[in-house]
Nucleic acid binder design. Structure first.
Ligand SMILES: [Zn+2]
Ligand SMILES: [Zn+2]
Ligand SMILES: [Zn+2]
Ligand SMILES: [Zn+2]
Lengths: 123, 123
DNA sequence: TTATTTTAGCAACATTGTTGCAATAATAAA
DNA sequence: TTTATTATTGCAACAATGTTGCTAAAATAA
């Protein structure tokens, strides 16, 4: 996979942001005219494939993209996410890994944990 | 809120189904021409408001609607959901309530827990 | 039965995401 | 460096999904 301006800038945005970013956020944050919105979709897909970012489906169905911090060893995104209804931020709670016990027979491949409410900064 | 044919039929569908249903599912399952797709959206909103159903945002961002089983006492939907990538079913795991501990300052109002993979019937 | 108010249908629109294809740009090979 | 190869981009077109405003119809109250 090739290194392009769009890819570099988008990864930079996601990495530097302290909240998770949606496609719309990225579109707004990128310098006007840097690339087409279709390109953003495609770049995000590539970054996901390469394992440089992970995604969170928010409580409103919007996909948010987050940089992978502790994924050098192995990719696991069992952690919780928080979506603030006031500041609209979506963040990774990297250290919160909910525990639960499934009945036999379930093979889990993906996990999407989201809490919604008011974050510490907004309360 | 008034009792109408569309509302009755849609609630019936959701209640009788052993999997959670998306707007598209409901549209397909309803007798052809029973009501407009806009009506389905509005009926679902009303059923949510009345607390007769709850919703789950699936891992693909699609909203699925589920009947409320143990909500007579109080509404709580802390339970896990499972989305099967083979049979495409989304189901409530009513008895699985993940436990986790949040840092102080977070006020949780909504919860959306979804696991994706292969369900017992498909494995 | 009549009056009131919610609900339904329809058209129009906005948003979001996808696909095909030709032009362009990044990398590999010469 | 130059050329060849192949991934990536932009654009247009399209599909799917969800929302809104308005009038007609239906449900309930009077
Ligand atoms: Zn906040
Ligand atoms: Zn995360
Ligand atoms: Zn299955
Ligand atoms: Zn449920």
């Amino acid at each position: 996979m090739r290194k392009t301006i769009a890819k570099t800038k988008i990864l930079e945005l996601i990495t530097r942001s302290n909240t998770n970013l949606s496609h719309a956020d990225i579109k707004n944050l990128l310098p006007d005219g840097l690339c087409d919105r279709v390109t953003i979709y495609r770049v995000l897909d590539r970054l996901l494939q390469e394992g440089l970012i992970h995604k969170v489906v928010n409580i409103d169905g919007v996909v948010n993209y987050a940089s992978c911090k502790n994924c050098e060893v192995e990719h696991s995104h069992n952690h919780m996410h928080f979506s603030c209804e006031k500041c609209k931020s979506v963040t990774c709670l990297d250290d919160i890994n909910p525990s639960f016990k499934l009945p036999k027979g379930y093979a889990v491949k993906e996990i999407n944990f989201v809490l919604s409410g008011v974050c510490p900064s907004c309360s």
